[in-house]
Amino acid sequence: MELLHAIGDGFLSVVGHLGLNTELMERYGPRFLDGVWVTLKLVGISVFLGALLALPLAVARVEGGKFLSRLAFGYSYFFRGTPLLAQTFLVYYGAGQFREQLTDIGLWWFFRDAFNCAVFTFTLNTAAYQSEILRGGIQSLPAGQVEAAFSLGLSRFLAYRKVVLPQAIAIGLRPLGNELILMIKSSAIASVITVYDLMGVTRLAFSRSYDMEVYLWAAVLYLLMVEVVRRVWDVLERRLNRHLLISR
């Protein structure tokens, strides 16, 4: 604990020497860290659940009959063609309107919380984008891959699990990284429905202090998150696709 305090004091003195507002930092600094954590949770959960939802959606686009593939297309068209802000309002305020019905089916506890509404909306939104990326990956594979899998006696399910999807994901790795970064940025929208993510904390601190500096902290923190994710993803991609890089 003492060590943490010492680090904190040291950090504040550095901040002071840089000519920044020490008092402001002392007051809101911890809240900003909380905000970063909320943003990371929001994005992490949404992107993970979105990926789980994107897999069946992408397969439905390619393999589903007329009905299923059109349904999956309609889903992705709606969520990619409308602003995330509108979708978030639709869920958050829409849920409030259907409170009685939601209570009846035992889901109100989930939708009464703004954070859950944000996770719900972001998941549906990113699933649409991720499913498009995966669909592109699946369709760029040569038909021989599936034919070879079938001739080895693999079922359709196994062929997808062992042959098609691993390759489709490898092809889509770079755009999937971009989608993750876009979600970090878009997650700022959650602040509009009273979630205290990094943007929410920033707006709160600004409304109390009227010091532009808080927006600059937020900018630095967002850029830091985006750059770290970009670099980590680069390493990850090179590692996962190393068998492709060698042959080049």
Binding site: I181, I184, K185, S186, S187, A188, I189, S191, V192, M199, T202, R203, F206, M212, Y215, L216, A218, A219, Y222, L223, V226, E227
Partner: peptide, 19 residues
Amino acid sequence: TTIFRGLPELLTLFIVYYG
């Protein structure tokens, strides 16, 4: 490019408007 592609659009808007 790094800055304006990395910042949330909402944050850019607030910085431009209030700043």
